[in-house]
Design a protein around this nucleic acid. Structure first.
Lengths: 198, 198
DNA sequence: CATTCTACTTACTAATTAGTAAGTAAGTTG
DNA sequence: CAACTTACTTACTAATTAGTAAGTAGAATG
């Protein structure tokens, strides 16, 4: 072997560069808005090189969601996240979405794929469902502990509130794209106002 | 002339049939997931017939958003909506989204176009911004009156709450598409719990 | 050192895309 | 009834799409 994944080298291998560029285009323009030719041209390779790493666009799309699912699990289990009190875990979540906003107002993966969901290959649909389910379960747990320890406040079940909050955050990035950053900040401000005890 | 818009006849004219089908495909599969060929085949006409009514796909897309904006203004000003107390106006809004859910889990127009927003023609972007702005302004007014008359309850400004609620509803339809109808019902239930005085 | 593997390129195909130009049948109008 | 308009169809183009097959340079391996 010469180089794999994106281990320790500074310049990532072609496979990773494809994934990174595809992710950027997916989150900035949508899944149906880029082609193998786009990717190839921008990476300085031939389209067939993309097919070598990802035989079909379905494979590429699925790899994108799978990678994001891996990232979620890693992030969630990071000591600097897992060991935080619930209110700060919530802030860490907000920071992730705020970071998307800062990167040219990217939407989140879920928001990028939900509208076109029915046109996606089955494995991609399955991975996206898992991704959203795991994220929701994580937040529900955070909210449950937060309310029990009086660091967070809300009515209804933690699961229902988690679903609502994540849906709102995904939507907030979309609204920011259509207008500007203001509505995102307004929405997150509103969430803080409601969830954090005053 | 023989027939225009969709006046009193039972069978709509071709232009309207194109718009209706395009809208269905847009809300069920996404804007980049259908072509003039798809439309033509399903309508039993030739692709050039679609070009006759809408020279480019940009024109078609713009007409779709413009029509929805007209519908919004009409709905909002309907006596059976405008004359309702605020809490019932909110329920009427929920009913619109619930109706989308009932139609094969269609997302709302905003949710269908937000992710691909940057790939849309400028007039379509402008119309969508206006659509979202007017809807938000309407809901903000409803919320303001609702709180003043104690039929609705929330913290923060009516404008912020309106932005948040609409964003959540748009997102809720997307989540329903990815999973099933349950999360939509859960989210609307949560909104009722929080907004309607117990 | 011969072989095999990795990561491509070149060259191609078949399908689909949006869009145009020219023709036409039926209805409308002066 | 002649001229025009509406609502199309037929026939086409140029570009783009995903995807494949065969070849190859260079590195790794037995």
């Amino acid at each position: 072997m010469s180089n794999q994944a994106s281990s320790s080298t500074l310049i990532p291998d072609t496979r990773t560069r494809i994934l990174d560029l595809a992710e950027t285009l997916l989150l900035e323009r949508g899944f149906n808005a880029f082609s193998y030719q786009h990717l190839a041209r921008e990476l300085g390779v031939r389209p067939a090189a993309i097919h070598y790493h990802f035989p079909s666009k379905d494979d590429l799309g699925t790899a994108l969601v799978t990678r994001q699912l891996r990232r979620l699990r890693k992030w969630r289990d990071l000591p600097r996240v897992a060991d935080l009190p619930p209110n700060q875990q919530l802030e860490a979540l907000f920071a992730v979405y705020d970071n998307h906003l800062g990167h040219d107002r990217r939407v989140c993966l879920f928001g990028a794929l939900a509208a076109d969901f029915r046109t996606l290959p089955a494995p991609m649909q399955a991975e996206l469902r898992t991704f959203n389910r795991e994220l929701t379960e994580w937040l529900a747990q955070v909210l449950a502990v937060g309310r029990a320890t009086s660091t967070l406040r809300f009515v209804g079940s933690p699961a229902a509130k988690a679903t609502q909050v994540l849906t709102t955050l995904a939507g907030a990035l979309q609204v920011a794209r259509v207008h500007d950053e203001t509505p995102f900040q307004v929405i997150v401000g509103q969430l803080r106002l409601e969830l954090l005890p005053s």
